[in-house]
Each structure stands twice: as C-alpha cells, then as structure tokens.
Design a protein around this nucleic acid. Structure first.
Lengths: 194, 194
DNA sequence: AACAAAGTGGAACAAACGGGTCGGATATTC
DNA sequence: GAATATCCGACCCGTTTGTTCCACTTTGTT
C-alpha cells in the first residue's frame, strides 16, 4: 500500500506531540490511538511496539534538527555569521525537539540502545559541520586558527557543556547569558585581530 | 508544630508545579514525594490523600489569582484602565494557573465537588469587583451605564465566553485578537461619548 | 460477484503501576 | 529517657497499560 508509509508518518507526528508533552513513560498507546481516532490495536499494524514508535519519533526529530541547522548555515554568508547562526539554532531547537532531547538525557530512558547510535552519529556529523565552518572561515580570512579539527572539537565540547544547564531548565536569562558568553568567547578567541 | 503548616505549603507549591505539567491523573504521589526528597508515605502525614493535595493546590492558585487581580486594579488609577488591567490579567493568569484552570474545565475532574464551590465563590467575588469598577467609573464620569449590576453581569458573561477558546489552546494571536475585540466592545459601549 | 489482501478494533491478559495503609525506625522536644 | 513528632520500607489490591488474538469490515482485483 502506498499510504502505509504516509500513515506511519502521521502516527509519528501525532506521537511526537504527545510524547513531548508527557514523556515516553506517561504517554499511553490509548492516547496516541485516540488522537489518531483509531483503535489501540490498529497502531500495531504500523508499528511493532511503543518503543518502536518512540524510536521513529526521535529519528524524525533528529532529522528535523539536521534540516534546520543546514538551513541556518545557508541563511547567511559570512563564516562568523554562519557559526553564530548554527549555535543559536542548535541551542534553540535542541530544547524544542524535546523527544530527541529527552532521549539523549533522560536517565529513565537509558535502556534504549538506539539512542546511543543516533547520538554518536549526530556528534560525528556536527563535528564535520563545525570543522568545515571553521576551515572555510579560515580560508576566507575571517578566522585565524591553526588546526580546524582541533578547534572544531573544542567548540563542540563547549556546546555540549551548554546542554547540561539547558537540561536543568534554568531561567531563560541564564541560558541566554551563557550563550552570549560562549559566543563572545569563541569569537574573540577565534577572530583575526585587525 | 509551627512548621507543619509551612511544610504543607511547600508540598503545595511542589505539587502545583508537577500537577500543572502532567495534570492530576498523570501525577503520582511517588513523583511529588521524590521532588520533596521524602518517602511517599511521609506525604500522608501532611495530607490525607492525593485529592486533598490537589484541592489545596487549586485553592492556593485561586488565592494567587485573587491577589494578582487585586494588585492589577490598584496598579492604575482611572476606571477604564482598572477594568482593562483587570481583564488582561485575568486572561493571562487564568491560563497560567493551570491547576485551577484544569480543575474548572477538565471533564475528567468533574467528580471533585470542591471545584464547584470554589468556582461559585470566585464568580460571586468577581461580579462584586466588576460591579464596583463599573460603579466607581460611573460616578467618576468615565462610564455612563444605567445599571451597574446588570452591566457587570454582562461583562462577566463575556469574560466567561472567552475562557472557552482559551481552553481550546488556540493560537496566541487569536486569543489576543478576541481580547482586543472584547475590550473595544466593552469600552465603546460603555464609555461616555464626549 | 467473488475473493484475497489490507486495515480495523473489541476483548482478553499478564505485568506493572500507583494510591493508600501499617508498623516500626529515627529525630526532636521536654 | 519517656513522649511525641516525623519519616519510611514493605506491602496490599484494584486499576492501568502494552501487547496479542481474532473476527470484522473495507478496499482493490479479476
């Protein structure tokens, strides 16, 4: 059937909404099926288990994140703007795509093996992106760094460090403050002094 | 003990936070006690049941609403401003104090009898406030209405009418648009033509 | 029309969950 | 050190929930 995939996508979108509100544990198959106006057992025609739905949801959000980050980079031209945009969007979206987010952080969910894989893949891709941004910025004369690889890793580490307080749900101001601080730090340490 | 009441208050604040996120049903006693870093059974030393906690939470939020509304009125001086302020704050806070809010609207919660009482009391008080605002505005020459009581009831009815779409969680814009429309209507129909 | 395949949902069930109880442990007060 | 206030682990038991089974309707094909 052609629209079986489409229906799977619909389930994913719906489940994503509910999961992101209540979390994996508190979301029931009953709720998902009700939101879809189907019988609970019908869902099992499209997915093997609740866990499989969650996996699909997290994958879906991870792709969404990737798409938005790519768009954010293309949006502007100069390397510093690209990097700044990337970091901003990363921080903002990361908290918004809460299933991906919880999947990565929630201790109660650490029995899902697929999370580790997704996370590892994302890390690899992100490092490549940052490395490229730094490299291009260097070539264009915006940045002045010795080793793109090493610098990219340092930046990524900083970004990871910001995820933790993000997870703690501190005050917005605090987050923004940290974000600004990190950006200033990165740019002041990276921009060619004129 | 002096701080038994204080501890009850702490439970209420904590429970309020969790209830407002997950709703009455999905919030467990386990979670509340964990958030308080106490054993589950310890909570029962302060409250008889989960329902009693919820009742206290709703009452707490109702009082908070009352306090903020009173403050909103005192904040400005002219009667039209007072009324405008009152309505704005009412709408904004109502959605924020989500337990009170859900208590009043959630169909799954209609077996709580205390809700009816709180609601009735709030209605009475609100009517009195609006009546007074209208009456004073009338005396001060800002408004020109025949019967304060009747007008106050009409305004309250309008406000109630706005709670429904508020409950539907429509777009912010829609809500604000309605709010403006209602305000314009009330004021244009109420302000003395010069 | 007839038949297979795709899709649906009600019923049933085992496992887990969750509100509430109880008896005793531990801390505090006098 | 007795009396009282506070806390908690272990348990109870009705309810919830993920999943399966199977009979059913719907859809597409010949």
């Amino acid at each position: 059937m052609v629209d079986k995939e489409e229906y799977r996508a619909r389930i994913i979108r719906t489940a994503s909404r509910i999961f992101s509100h209540y979390g994996f544990r508190k979301t029931t198959m009953e709720e998902i099926s009700q939101a879809l106006k189907k019988g609970k057992s019908s869902i099992y025609y499209y997915f093997q288990s609740k866990e499989e739905i969650f996996e699909a949801v997290v994958l879906y959000e991870a792709n969404q994140l990737r798409r938005r980050l790519t768009a954010a980079i293309k949006e502007v031209d100069s390397p510093p703007d690209k990097l700044r945009n990337y970091i901003y969007v990363r921080m903002r979206e990361f908290a918004k795509l809460s299933n991906y987010y919880n999947a990565v952080f929630d201790k109660n969910l650490d029995h899902f093996e697929f999370i580790e894989k997704i996370r590892a893949r994302y890390d690899r891709e992100e490092l490549a992106i940052i490395r490229l941004l730094v490299y291009v910025g260097n070539n264009r004369g915006s940045f002045a760094v010795e080793d793109s690889e090493y610098t990219a890793m340092a930046i990524q580490t900083m970004l990871k460090g910001m995820e933790v307080p993000l997870f703690w749900r501190r005050r917005e101001i605090d987050i923004n403050y940290r974000l600004e601080a990190i950006l200033t730090l990165i740019f002041n340490g990276i921009l060619k002094k004129q």
